[in-house]
Amino acid sequence: MRKSLLALLVLGSTLTLAACDQAKEKAAEVKQATETKVEQAKAAVVEAKDAAADKATEMKDAVAAKATEMKDTAAAKTEEVKAAAVEAKDAAAAKVTEMKDAAAAKTEEVKNAAVEVKDAAADKVTEMKDAAATKMAEAKDAMKNAVSEAKDAMKAVGEKVEEIKPSTETK
């Protein structure tokens, strides 16, 4: 009889330890998944930032090249004919203004896109944090329940032992 009780006690302890190990493994998996998602979000933000910077540099270079080209054209026309130089200067000024406006609009678009990507990444990180916190709370509750069940089982085993003990002592 004592061997059976001892076997039950060992079985209860083994089940409790197995439940704890499973909860730890699940928590490690959730943490790893969260870290992976955070790294992906960071990489996406960095890529968007780099793309915006490259696009702004491209626009700046294009405007600068076009402005230089317009300046050279205006200088050549000035030497040929004074009247033609005035017309070319006016055309160049209008074109530069137009390109400047277009570049400003494009830069604003790129900036807005980068802000949207940043906001989306921040929302995703927050969502992943919340999901991880929920999973951890669930794992904690499951562990508490398993421990409580193990305690109840141990108490029941103890009570059964106390019931059986008088009957074995009288024999």
Rank of each mutant, 00 (worst) to 15 (best):
L6R: 13
A7R: 14
A7I: 11
A7C: 06
L8W: 14
L8S: 14
G12W: 13
S13P: 08
T14N: 04
L15S: 01
T16G: 07
T16N: 09
T16D: 08
L17M: 10
A18P: 04
A19W: 06
Q22K: 10
K26F: 15
A27F: 08
A28L: 08
E29S: 15
T34N: 09
E35T: 10
E39S: 13
Q40Y: 11
Q40F: 09
Q40N: 15
A41M: 04
K42L: 04
K42S: 03
A44I: 05
A52M: 08
D54T: 11
T57W: 15
M59P: 11
A67I: 06
A67D: 08
T68D: 06
M70F: 09
K71M: 02
D72F: 00
A74D: 00
A74F: 00
A75G: 00
V81S: 09
K82I: 09
K82S: 10
K82H: 09
V86K: 01
E87W: 02
A88Q: 00
K89S: 03
D90C: 00
A91C: 04
A92R: 00
A94Y: 03
A94M: 04
K95C: 02
K95Y: 07
V96C: 01
T97M: 06
K100S: 03
K100G: 02
K100F: 03
D101L: 05
D101E: 13
A103W: 02
A105L: 05
E108M: 10
E108I: 07
K111N: 03
K111M: 01
K111W: 02
A113I: 08
V115N: 02
V115F: 06
V117E: 07
K124A: 15
E127F: 10
E127M: 11
E127G: 10
M128F: 13
M128Y: 13
K129Q: 12
K129D: 03
K129N: 09
D130R: 12
D130K: 14
A131R: 11
A132L: 03
A132Q: 04
A133Y: 01
T134S: 08
M136V: 15
A137R: 12
A139Q: 03
K144M: 05
N145R: 14
N145S: 15
V147R: 07
S148N: 13
A150Y: 04
K155G: 03
E163V: 07
E163L: 07
K165V: 07
T168G: 08
K171N: 05
